[in-house]
Design a protein around this nucleic acid. Structure first.
Lengths: 218, 218
DNA sequence: TCGAGATAAATTGTCGACAATCGACAGTCG
DNA sequence: CGACTGTCGATTGTCGACAATTTATCTCGA
């Protein structure tokens, strides 16, 4: 690896963004050690911004900083997966409930657009594209919840979830099958008459299902 | 303020702990600016550990770091309160549900002990003592959930909640009144026959009630 | 008197160097 | 032969100084 140029403002942020990308696309693997002096040379900066970037990654749950021993990319375990989805499920369920309370027309349109894109991706078995629009579909009602605390917590969890996704083989079949539940979620969200509890249950159940699936390879 | 001595290991951690105490007991008020050079002199260390402590406080949501502008103790707003309790409610609800799934006898005993202490404190109108045991009561089933991710998230939220508590006048009357719901939560948690959904609903409802109370002074 | 612009002070961001600590290896002793 | 201890290299923790930026102050003119 050679020295990379990144002039401008916000050194720590830019470094952490680069590292996040590297972790999410598995250039950096779970358990890998991040050495300050190496990254210092790699980015052509001093150790201070590198250390601050590490703190940011730690906050986001992507690395673990062990005092006087170094920082390591977090290793995904079965336990992490078992703990992740129930928490994400209740939070997204709450987000859906709160979003349902004040849905705007454009939010509904955005949801419908993402769902159509998901259908198209499923038809061509483009799993990667499907996942992108699937993520955006969820993002719409999360943002629409208007609860900034909730939004931040979910976004952090979803970032970690991106690490998890490598361990679950998203098949075209699963894409096809999950279209139905998203259609129902869309309908419920856009129907003011729908019971808030029902909207919440649909979303929560949809996410909890990830745990039931047995194909996780660890 | 004079220089304070804190030898030993974990400078940043010790500094952040000191600052957390100061923020929670309102020695440092919302909106106050934390200047690196001042704290550096106060603690008799360099700016590096102070900066790391700031990052820790930011992660915990107690301060806000604005780039090139300084770090400020977070100001509590009505919006924060409105966003806080629904999120805490669903998370503690989930914790209670998961704890209910594998309650040990000693957890039940601990719950009962805390509830008795709460009753005693309520009888003598010792609100401070009541709140301490109330916090521990919740802590028991949170820990019993066994979900470390969930535990960490709730603990962070509860820390922030400690800041909120100054804005709600906890009266002896409220203590007395909340004994009943805690008795029901205790019974539900300790009864294996109880429906998980019911346990979750009880806890979630109890926490969401904080929002309905009108006595918040902002 | 008030406001805009220039200047000065204060504060954060970054850097390179030194100190403290950890892990591995080798040597010694039982 | 195995376990313990001391040393060495590598890496993190801390420091003080400098650079960049923001905020406060001062001056000048309308």
């Amino acid at each position: 690896m050679d020295t990379i140029d990144l002039d401008g403002a916000g050194l720590p942020h830019r470094i952490s963004q680069t590292l996040i990308k590297a972790i999410l696309d598995r250039t950096l693997r779970g358990g890998d050690r991040l050495v300050e002096t190496e990254l210092q040379k790699h980015f052509g900066v001093s150790r201070s911004p590198v250390r601050e970037a590490f703190r940011d990654l730690e906050k986001r749950g992507l690395v673990e900083i062990r005092a006087r021993r170094g920082t390591f990319v977090k290793k995904i375990t079965r336990k992490d997966i078992n703990e992740h989805y129930p928490v994400l499920a209740v939070l997204e369920g709450l987000a859906a409930r709160q979003a349902h309370g004040h849905m705007r027309r454009d939010s509904g349109k955005a949801l419908a657009a993402e769902l159509r894109a998901m259908e198209a991706a499923a038809r061509t078995s483009d799993v990667e594209l499907f996942l992108e629009h699937h993520g955006r579909f969820h993002g719409v009602y999360i943002q629409a919840s208007g609860n900034q605390l909730l939004i931040d917590m979910i976004m952090d969890l979803r970032l970690r979830g991106t690490m998890l996704r490598y361990f679950y083989p998203h098949t075209p079949a699963y894409c096809q099958q999950s279209l139905d539940i998203h259609q129902r979620i869309l309908s419920a969200l856009c129907n003011p008459q729908e019971a808030p509890g029902q909207v919440e249950r649909l979303v929560r159940g949809h996410i909890e299902e990830m745990l039931v699936l047995k194909e996780w390879e660890l």
